[in-house]
Amino acid sequence: MKLEHVAIWTDDLEALKAYYQRYFGGIPNAKYTNEKKGFQSYFLRFQSGARLELMSMKSIPANQNDTIQAQYKGIIHIAFGVDSIREVDQKADQLRADGYPILSGPRKTGDGYYEFETLDPDNNRIEVSAIYPD
């Protein structure tokens, strides 16, 4: 069994699509629109085969979680894996240079990874990691 996709509600569908395209290589499909429901979405496919569904509908309320300062039970981040420590550092440098916060890292974790955590334009937590060679 494989994880097929993860979905995110957003108020700015185009900005979030552009972020995942630019920084993580997501390839979007054509925008789907259901005018009756006021719903729009994109699926972005990644090199691994995993997909991310970005969805927008005016009737969806804002998330009340403080995603920057605190964490809550439930899904907390999306992780992207790269092949090397150097790629982790390069992605952190790129995102930092483009004005995105680096919340932690890059650092070696106790479970054998090298990673950092950042936020996408909607303040969803993103982790980028590589296996730390011993």
Rank of each mutant, 00 (worst) to 15 (best):
V6F: 10
V6G: 06
A7F: 10
I8C: 12
T10V: 13
T10I: 09
E14G: 04
L16H: 06
L16M: 14
Y19V: 07
Y20G: 04
Y23P: 03
F24L: 11
G26L: 02
P28T: 05
P28C: 06
P28K: 04
K31L: 08
Y32T: 12
E35L: 00
E35M: 00
K36L: 03
G38W: 00
Q40Y: 00
S41I: 01
L44V: 05
L44P: 02
R45M: 13
S48T: 13
S48V: 04
S48A: 11
G49R: 12
G49M: 09
G49V: 10
L52A: 07
L54V: 07
K58G: 11
S59D: 14
S59H: 06
Q64G: 07
Q64R: 09
N65V: 08
D66N: 14
D66V: 02
Q69N: 15
Q69E: 12
Y72L: 01
K73I: 11
G74D: 08
I75H: 03
I76V: 12
I76Y: 08
F80C: 08
F80K: 05
F80T: 04
V82K: 02
V82M: 05
V82C: 11
D83C: 06
I85Y: 08
V88C: 12
Q90F: 06
Q90G: 03
A92V: 09
A92Y: 10
D98P: 10
G99H: 07
Y100K: 08
P101I: 07
I102R: 03
I102H: 04
G105D: 09
R107K: 15
K108I: 12
Y113I: 07
Y113N: 15
Y113V: 10
Y113R: 15
Y114N: 13
E117F: 14
L119C: 09
D120W: 03
P121L: 09
P121Y: 08
D122W: 01
R125E: 02
I126D: 01
I126Y: 00
Y132I: 00
D134T: 01
